[in-house]
């Protein structure tokens, strides 16, 4: 299984990332990709705030530890499903509403492995990888609190 892990400020090109996975080898029968965006509602502190007041997002991470955790996450997925390729890209730094934040792509022989692994990778990434988001509301930065639904999402994958 080939894994490709990146943490970077720059935007990514979903088409290029899809082609990278598609062309890995001739056994590939399915490629599933997921792209996460800066969305129009954000749970800031404990209150729900409207998107039109969210002017920016800033993502911080722990260099070195983050990449190691992302590699572990990809390896964990490859233990659970028969995969041929995994790409995980996470952006950091300043982002605006509608910007791309995260990309997960999985290549496998059959579609069910790719669908399941992509969902698992995203659930695991949200709960384990060392990223922290803050959002600008008005002229104030607010650190984002984790959602209990992210923890719940992990439960379906069993022990972790």
């Amino acid at each position: 299984m080939k894994s490709h892990i990146r943490v970077e400020c720059e935007n990514f090109d979903v088409g290029l990332e899809y082609q990278r996975l598609r062309l890995l080898c001739h056994q590939i029968g399915a490629v599933v990709t997921f792209t996460g965006l800066v969305r129009d509602f954000e749970n800031s502190e404990s209150q729900k705030v409207r998107s039109d007041s969210l002017s920016a997002m800033d993502l911080q991470h722990y260099p070195g530890m983050t990449e190691a955790l992302m590699t572990n996450i990809a390896e964990e997925a490859a233990v659970r499903w028969s995969l041929l390729g995994v790409t995980i890209i996470h952006r950091v730094g300043k982002l605006s509403p509608n910007d791309q934040i995260v990309f997960v792509g999985v290549a496998s022989e059959h579609r069910s492995e790719a669908f399941n692994a992509a969902e698992f990778l995203m659930d695991y990434l949200k709960l384990k990888a060392t990223f922290w988001k803050r959002v600008m509301i008005g002229d104030q930065w607010h650190w984002v609190s984790p959602k209990s639904s992210d923890e719940d999402a992990m439960l379906k994958w069993g022990r972790h």
């Binding site: 996460g36 993502l59 991470h61 722990y62 070195g64 530890m65 190691a68 996470h90 934040i101 995260v102 995203m122 990434l125 949200k126 709960l127 384990k128 990888a129 060392t130 990223f131 922290w132 988001k133 650190w143 984002v144 609190s145 984790p146 992210d150």
Partner: peptide, 26 residues
Amino acid sequence: NKVIVGWDYPINDGDELAFLPPVTGG
């Protein structure tokens, strides 16, 4: 040193200790 440990883990001179609040990536 970039590995999650318990609160009683022994720390040596030259180590890097990081305090991590709940993560919010993705």
